[in-house]
Amino acid sequence: MAMRVATFSISDQMIAAALRTQSTMANMQIQEASGVVSSDFGGYGSSSQQIVNLQVSVTRADSYIDAATQADSKIQVMYSAVGSIADLLTNFRSLLTSATSAASTDSSSVAQSAQEALQQMASLLNTQYSGDYVFGGARTDVAPVDIDSATYPTATSPSTANTSYYQGDQEKASVRVSDSQTISYGVTADNSAFEQAMRAINLVANNSPLSTATLNEALDLSESAIDGVGVLQSKISNAASAIERASSFQTEYQTYAQTLGSDLTSVDVAAVTASLATYQAQLTASYAAISKVQGLNLASYLT
């Protein structure tokens, strides 16, 4: 009867060592194929929490970038509308300057031009972006300006501030661009610059006959409105720049965090491939040794 020469303990140790080598090779083959250290967080040991934190921060940065991008698009629409308002007011001021310097004024013609300008002004202040009104504060589903409302006077003499045309609220649009920074960029249609513009145009559109005092008052209001609209343009432009800077920072941070996370999770495929070759040779030798040991028996030494 054949008998083992090696003890069971030595044979068992050799098999266990070979199995460990085989397990290591299996993990390295997965790493070689996937390019990452492990398919789950358990395989990263003490680095797992850092990896999770980095992934969360990348996702958070992505949400800030998306919010900034959406806000920037809205700001561009707002800036364009305010620019058109500035052009409208410049033309209206030219109309008033001509009317006040003329020997005689064609009141009906000037009033008609003013009525058209009033409609254009209302339309610009009711500008929408993606279906939302941009100058209505938080009430984005309601047109912020209604000049046909019974509450808005069809004649404004004497001239006093009146924002009864405004249907929105006082909430200013803002966007969170980081954990600690929120940028306000909203402008509402009841802003004093817009109110003065509306009042100046309404003075001319709905007062007949047009007196020199009315024309001068409207001209003064339009001058003040133009200055105010210029300030609004600067404010919107500054907000756009601040949002762009914040978005760029988040993009840079996201790239940094992704690179750091990749460094923690990725493997050097070339190095793993080289190690696999070494382990393969070691495993082959182990199996050969085990086979030789298990093939020995007492009869081999008695013959």
Rank of each mutant, 00 (worst) to 15 (best):
177 V>R: 01
106 D>P: 03
111 A>V: 08
173 A>P: 02
169 D>M: 03
31 Q>R: 12
167 Q>D: 04
303 T>S: 08
5 V>M: 06
86 A>D: 10
239 A>R: 01
251 T>G: 05
142 V>H: 00
61 A>E: 03
209 P>S: 10
282 Q>W: 05
119 Q>A: 13
250 Q>H: 02
298 L>T: 04
141 D>N: 08
273 T>E: 11
127 T>E: 03
221 L>Q: 04
18 A>F: 02
132 D>T: 01
260 L>T: 14
111 A>P: 08
47 S>A: 12
60 R>L: 09
273 T>S: 15
235 K>Q: 14
26 A>H: 09
127 T>S: 12
99 A>P: 05
118 L>T: 05
216 N>A: 05
257 A>N: 14
57 S>D: 14
118 L>E: 09
93 R>F: 06
100 T>G: 08
31 Q>E: 14
179 D>R: 07
273 T>Y: 01
207 N>K: 02
62 D>G: 12
221 L>K: 06
231 V>T: 13
199 R>H: 07
242 A>Q: 10
166 Y>G: 13
267 V>D: 15
232 L>K: 07
241 S>E: 15
250 Q>I: 04
97 T>P: 06
243 I>P: 05
303 T>N: 10
102 A>Y: 11
63 S>K: 14
90 T>M: 00
104 S>W: 00
33 A>Y: 15
164 S>G: 15
165 Y>T: 13
271 A>V: 04
82 V>L: 05
133 Y>K: 04
135 F>W: 03
279 Y>I: 03
69 T>I: 01
100 T>R: 06
148 D>C: 00
288 A>W: 00
103 A>N: 11
190 D>K: 06
303 T>K: 08
238 N>L: 07
197 A>G: 13
158 P>K: 11
143 A>G: 06
51 I>F: 09
80 S>N: 14
66 D>I: 12
41 F>S: 11
66 D>Q: 12
166 Y>N: 02
61 A>V: 03
110 V>F: 09
219 L>P: 04
6 A>E: 00
150 A>G: 14
92 F>Y: 14
85 I>K: 00
201 I>W: 06
141 D>P: 01
97 T>L: 15
271 A>M: 07
179 D>A: 10
122 A>C: 07
44 Y>P: 01
72 D>A: 13
268 D>T: 00
38 S>Y: 02
241 S>Y: 03
156 T>C: 13
